[in-house]
Simulated assay, not measured.
Amino acid sequence: MTAESRINSLETSYGRLAWRADGPEGGAPLVLFQRFRGTMDDWDPTFIHALSAKHRVIRFDSAGIGRSEGTVPDSVGGIAAVAAEVVQKLGFNQVDILGWSLGGIIGQQFALDFPNLVRCLIVAGSSPGPIADGPQQDPRVLQVMTKATDNDERDFLFLFYPETETAVAEGRASLKRIESQPNKGPGVSAAGFMGQIKAISTWQGVLGRAKELKLPILVANGAHDVMLPAYRSYVLSQQAPNAKLVLYPDAGHAFLFQVIDDFVAEIDRFLA
């Protein structure tokens, strides 16, 4: 199926949650964990199409997000628990996970809390937690990403792409593809936004337990990420015992929508 796959509903203890499936059945499915203030409709459809050529791809709106009922848990562990119930209710014994940004944080916590449910983990544009040394987040990021109103194109280009002609052009093309999808669902509500903020702000990170993350991990980022600097991806790759690090030049936080062919090929090799 394509990125215009049917919207399904799943009854859970958190309420009825919305989910979609793309790609061929068989093997461990690849479950996507979305970014802060993102829904399952905020994945670039070209990325979904490429990813689902070889993999069964599952994306969903967590509790209190987008089309789903319920309330956003106020901890990263709570959000990971929602994802675990989704995996189990869908009948999967084991899955691969691709988490982007906040989704990468949730993916790391998921792997610690539910190790029997995850085979391989992909951490994209994310962080293992607070890191005092090395490059820090651009000071403008917090103000832009927490605006009370929805972010506009200018905000997304600043947050997600380097200020080069090529990167900006690719960023605009990706944003256009996302916004032009038919039947796009609602965005993250004010209550959902606040729940995610609380979860992020209270998360202690995984560095103290990173040695426990013995599963295969692919850590990837754009070399010029202003939100979660690539140095944090490097730190995670050094602490987790079976991690591979890939950085993309002239790319930022949304590198996965900028270098789609290269990153999907990397994912294919990793999961094979």
Rank of each mutant, 00 (worst) to 15 (best):
R67G: 04
G27C: 05
G187I: 02
L213Q: 01
A210E: 10
Q108P: 00
F60H: 10
N183G: 08
Q204P: 05
P135L: 09
S127I: 06
W43R: 09
K244F: 07
P73A: 14
A199T: 14
L117G: 04
L215R: 09
P45L: 11
V123P: 11
V188Q: 10
E11N: 12
V219W: 14
W203P: 15
P73T: 11
Q109W: 03
L90I: 01
W100C: 03
E170A: 12
G171V: 10
E85V: 09
G134H: 09
N93Q: 11
D150W: 10
A169F: 02
G208D: 09
G107V: 03
P182K: 14
L271D: 03
G77H: 12
N242E: 08
A148N: 04
G38M: 07
G70D: 05
F33I: 12
T164D: 03
L207A: 04
P216R: 05
S101D: 09
F263K: 00
F257S: 14
L256M: 10
L17H: 09
P241N: 15
H224Q: 08
L142G: 15
R232P: 02
K176C: 02
S174L: 03
P135Y: 03
A272N: 06
Q108D: 05
L256W: 13
L228E: 11
A3H: 14
A84D: 08
D262C: 02
D133I: 08
S201V: 14
R35A: 15
M145Y: 11
P139S: 13
G27V: 03
I122K: 00
L51P: 06
V141F: 07
G70E: 03
V86Y: 01
R20V: 12
V226T: 06
T202P: 07
A251Y: 05
A173E: 05
A50W: 01
A173L: 12
F158I: 10
V264A: 13
G205A: 11
S127N: 02
Q239T: 03
F47L: 13
V87G: 01
E11I: 06
E69N: 08
I131M: 13
I105M: 15
V95H: 02
R269N: 14
R6N: 01
V72Y: 03
V86C: 00
R56V: 00
Q109D: 08
L218V: 06
M1D: 02
Q143T: 10
R37H: 09
S180A: 11
H49I: 02
S233H: 06
V188Y: 04
A167K: 10
I7D: 06
V144F: 05
A80C: 08
N183F: 12
K214C: 11
R172T: 01
N221R: 00
E25L: 03
S5N: 07
R20K: 13
G103F: 11
S13D: 14
H253W: 08
V31K: 02
G185N: 13
P186S: 13
A63L: 04
L32A: 04
Q204Y: 05
G103W: 02
W19C: 03
H55P: 01
G208V: 10
V206Y: 13
I105T: 10
T46A: 14
L271M: 08
A210T: 06
F255Y: 15
G129E: 10
Q196D: 06
